[in-house]
Amino acid sequence: MRSRGLDAQGHIAPEGALGLIPREFGPVVVTARDRLMDVFGARLNSAYLYGSVPRGTARVGTSDLDLLLVLREEPTEEDRADARSLDSALDKEFAQIDGSGTLLFSRTRLLSGLETHDLGWFVACLCTRLLGEDLAEYLPRYRPDSLLARETNGDLALLLPRWHERIADTAADTADTAESRRRLVRFMSRHLVRTGFTLVMTRWNGWTSDLTEMAEAFAVYYPERAVEMRRAAVLGHEPSGDLAVLRSYVDDLGPWLAEEYARVHGVKAPRPGQGAGI
């Protein structure tokens, strides 16, 4: 029996399955799987789907395809370029998806002690195996506790300076600005809602990946910030290209959330290259 995303023992239950993939997205997944083998071949240890597609909640034309690849060695720039090319090709070929994104990690890093409650948890609970070895077999069971909260989203303060830079870049860009801003609003909205949820996860005592449910759980404990978080949840699904929204994230909601997160759960253990992503 599951309650709030937990199994009978109180562990976070894996949320996706190949059998949950909506029929319309079947051709996208099959093509992605075949091309992954063609592109990465023996370099590939495992491939996973995550996000709305394996959860069965993907929306045609508005959901993206999310892939996580585990390589036998540390990813190279060539590997990352190959992944970007694959993402671009899938996005252009299939109208069902609004973008494709691929994360790359080595098997050694993913199974390291430093990543047990971050990447390890992500693979064990939020990813659905598509190809190769299932690394969840080497990982523990997870509960919605403060350690998990800290190690998953306790680095927001380090990300905010890079977000400032990205916003400045897209504000100055005259080519495809609206689309760049829209994608940035979607990414930052989702990240902030998920961070807001993991802030209260231990008190809520459960797990969900539904942005609306995350925002509502957050609102119970921080009603003074409920309107902002609910709005971010909406924009996570239907983003605008409004620069004012982005600036409010890095000037107000983001800094407040980072400070409160550190107060409640502490700061995430440093990682190599931490804060370098968008």
Rank of each mutant, 00 (worst) to 15 (best):
M1N: 11
R2S: 15
D7V: 09
A8G: 07
A8C: 07
G10H: 11
A17C: 08
A17G: 15
P22K: 04
P27S: 04
V29Y: 00
A32H: 02
R33V: 01
R35I: 00
G41L: 05
L44V: 06
A47E: 01
Y48I: 01
G51L: 00
P54M: 00
P54Y: 00
R55G: 03
T57A: 01
A58T: 00
R59F: 01
V60H: 07
T62F: 02
S63W: 01
L67G: 00
L69M: 02
R72Q: 07
P75V: 01
T76S: 14
D79K: 01
S85G: 09
L86C: 01
S88E: 15
S88G: 13
S88H: 10
S88I: 00
A95H: 07
G99T: 04
G101L: 03
G101A: 09
L103W: 08
S106R: 07
R107N: 06
L111E: 11
L114W: 04
L114I: 09
L119E: 07
L119N: 07
G120I: 12
V123W: 09
A124Y: 10
L126K: 15
G132Y: 10
E137I: 13
E137T: 14
R141M: 11
R141Y: 13
R143M: 11
L148I: 10
R150A: 10
N153C: 13
G154R: 09
D155K: 09
A157E: 14
L159F: 07
E165Q: 14
I167H: 08
I167A: 10
A168N: 14
T170P: 01
A171H: 08
A171C: 12
A172H: 12
A172R: 15
T177F: 05
A178R: 13
S189E: 06
R194H: 10
G196K: 05
V200A: 04
R203E: 15
N205W: 15
T208Y: 05
T208K: 04
D210G: 08
E213R: 12
E213W: 00
A215S: 15
E216Y: 06
A219M: 04
V220I: 13
Y221I: 07
Y222D: 07
Y222H: 15
R225C: 03
V227N: 06
A232P: 03
A232R: 07
A232H: 06
A233Y: 02
A233M: 05
G241Y: 03
A244L: 13
A244F: 08
A244N: 11
L246H: 05
L246T: 06
E259I: 04
A262D: 14
H265E: 09
G266Y: 10
V267G: 04
K268S: 13
A269W: 08
A276E: 15
G277H: 13
